[in-house]
Design a protein around this nucleic acid. Structure first.
Lengths: 195, 195
DNA sequence: GTCTATACTTGGATAGAC
DNA sequence: GTCTATCCAAGTATAGAC
């Protein structure tokens, strides 16, 4: 499983063959099929593990954050962990690779669903009792956050440079602090601006 | 070239072989190597064409937009075009696939660079003479926009559902209109908040 | 320029020894 | 459970006829 994650991160979807995985795991190629039936099944199992592992990590991190600034700071440290371990790379490679294997798309989508729910919950909590809850639905914001996270990871991985992504987190933290200081007075809560 | 774009969109990076491209183009597989030398070269040529094609389209669209609301509306219609034609899919597949072919990453990154410059210019124009120019650097915002665009496309392609992405554009348009109406009075321009 | 034919490599998957 | 050996399919790439 660890070898699969490693291979997905370093060799990409199309480079992650049974032979490549076995080479990294230091075992025989046939074992992939003995234990998982097919390479695709192993890829999905790896995605399952990554997904479960990270989700609990995220939940713990978000529970410890009590304002938006802390939330962004937490998101940043978790993002760095993801970059280092290549977890989001696994996700991105699986999403991109899904188009080449019939039926894989649905499986990948199903495994991303919990992340979306998690993000939506986090956004709901974050927006609660702020004037912004009138401006944007938590599910919408969550979709944007997931997409942004994915895109940032892909660009960071492509360039081998995480600085632009980290600068964005820094900026988000700064703006979050600013909005917190304004205390939500600049936008009146009573206005029914939401469509 | 058209067959290559089509294949990348429908079969993904790993499904886009010389044979698959030739099948779609209705010609012989060997022609790929006669005309382009290698499959990788053809992929890069296709990315070049898509990049050039879309960049001029984007530039025209942005020139026609004179406020933020129009800019967002324009971005949405161009985004829908991209989804329909699979242009961003080509980009996403090439980025994800880059990790499997040594040296491909740098080539892909070089072809994305003009998009980043374009996005940064558009953001600079958009932020000019607004109080937000103090809050965030155009390059930072551009990086986020490119990443978000990429992520939205990947999720839309995975789910076969573009509704969440379109809802976000709608929301952005709404908020842009709101900010325009506020006229930038809620944030004083003199404050040196930017680090 | 386009085709057929072919050499060579890699990958998925299975059979059978241990 | 793990290994060796092997089959088969698919991919890249080239040579050579037309």
């Amino acid at each position: 499983m660890a070898a699969t994650i490693e291979a997905l991160r370093e060799e990409g979807f199309s480079g992650t063959s049974a032979r490549e995985i076995a080479r990294r795991a230091g075992c025989n190629q046939g074992l992939v099929f003995y234990h998982f039936g097919s390479v695709t099944n192993l890829l999905l199992a790896a995605l399952d593990e990554v997904s479960a592992l990270r989700l609990t990590r995220y939940q713990d991190a978000v529970e410890g954050a009590h304002d938006v600034g802390q939330l962004v700071a937490t998101a940043e440290s978790v993002f760095v962990e993801d970059l280092d371990a290549g977890y989001i790379s696994v996700l991105a490679e699986m999403i991109a690779g899904a188009s080449s294997t019939p039926g894989l798309g649905a499986e990948v989508a199903a495994r991303i669903a919990p992340w979306r729910r998690f993000a939506a919950d986090a956004m709901r909590d974050m927006l609660a009792d702020t004037p912004f809850s009138q401006l944007v639905a938590p599910e919408e914001l969550a979709h944007a956050v997931v997409a942004l996270y994915l895109g940032l990871e892909m660009l960071a991985h492509l360039d081998g440079d995480r600085a632009p992504a980290l600068a964005l987190f820094e900026r988000a933290r700064q703006i979050a602090g600013l909005l917190g200081a304004l205390g939500g007075v600049s936008v009146a809560k009573e206005e029914p601006w939401a469509r």
